[in-house]
Write a protein that binds this DNA or RNA. Structure first.
Lengths: 170, 170
DNA sequence: CAGTATATGTCAGTGTTGTTGACATTCCAA
DNA sequence: TTGGAATGTCAACAACACTGACATATACTG
């Protein structure tokens, strides 16, 4: 179904970058690159009792301190039960603290402790180092293209979450 | 590692695309985009008894028919026990066949059956549709940049595997 | 040929991370 | 004030990765 149509429908323009072969290469690039993307933090976490899920939670708590469990849930796209297990161990180990909401006591607001911040720093340093090296090798224009394509690949809700975070930090 | 050239090339120029904030946005973009990237096949597979691991195996067997177990192992980056569990169910369900090697009888060469090919088609149609839409929205230059950055983000071994596959197909 | 290396498969056990279901607490609105 | 919605917690289970140990068949080497 996707064969040939991509080239024939839009014939006239130069749409060679939309051939199935190009798309498949894009798919494989995503697969291999994502492995590299997570490799460094994974290595660090392997020695501890934590995994990728803990990394993600720590990252976004660092990013938006005081965020609620529910908010984090939406960003991470997992069930609250799944997130809860991760948060419980992080709280037990003293990396995260959870404060009952002042306005709405049902809510828990999440913060990193000093120890949590320290781990976040270690992990993001490793991940940023690879990203920086890739960005530098590729150059600013490639980086702009990289981000454009990634944003177009997200679900709409994730695009919103991403944009919201982006604006918060900038 | 390639720092010399790129630093000297860009030193003095605008390196704002390498700030921590930019890197963090790149990291978050990868995270959210990868979710979108796997979302469609995941939805299809959820109804069947298969998961993402089966999808990956099917993809690369389709991509390199007759590949050996060992080869697949290296591409997927999992243990043989883990891959074996997946392959066993795929073979039992009649999606994959394994043929004893003619030259080296220790090897098993893997192929998709018609049924396996049909599932592969369904899954990759879904994934390509999203990739095509993202590529089209972003345009050819962005796509080139996207691929440049992803390739720079891979581990060297994965880069080789990726290039080998790329050349096979093109 | 004997001994070693390689390719594959299997069993058992464990850890992380996702799922659903059940339930407690808190808030809010009829 | 009472019932429903929102928020979060606990328990049990499934998928899929891992390690370690071992079996089998085949290939290679001295």
């Amino acid at each position: 179904m996707s064969d040939g149509r991509s080239t024939s429908t839009y014939s006239g323009e130069n749409l060679l970058f939309l051939t199935d072969e190009q798309l498949r290469q894009g798919i494989e690039a995503m697969f291999f690159a994502y492995r590299g993307f997570t490799a460094d933090p994974d290595r660090i976490l392997a020695d501890m009792a934590y995994g990728r899920a803990h990394h993600r939670a720590i990252h976004f708590i660092h990013r938006a301190p005081g965020t609620t469990v529910n908010n984090l849930l939406n960003i991470l796209g997992v069930t609250k039960q799944s997130l809860n297990r991760v948060l419980r161990t992080l709280i037990e180990q003293g990396l995260v603290i959870s404060k009952v909401g002042k306005v709405d006591k049902r809510e828990r607001h999440l913060f990193l402790t000093d120890e949590g911040s320290s781990l976040e720093q270690t992990l993001s340093d490793a991940q940023r180092a690879r990203m920086r090296s890739a960005f530098r090798d590729a150059g600013p224009e490639a980086v702009a293209g990289f981000r454009t394509v990634l944003e177009a690949m997200m679900d709409t809700e994730m695009q919103r979450a991403y944009t919201r975070l982006k604006e918060t930090g900038a």
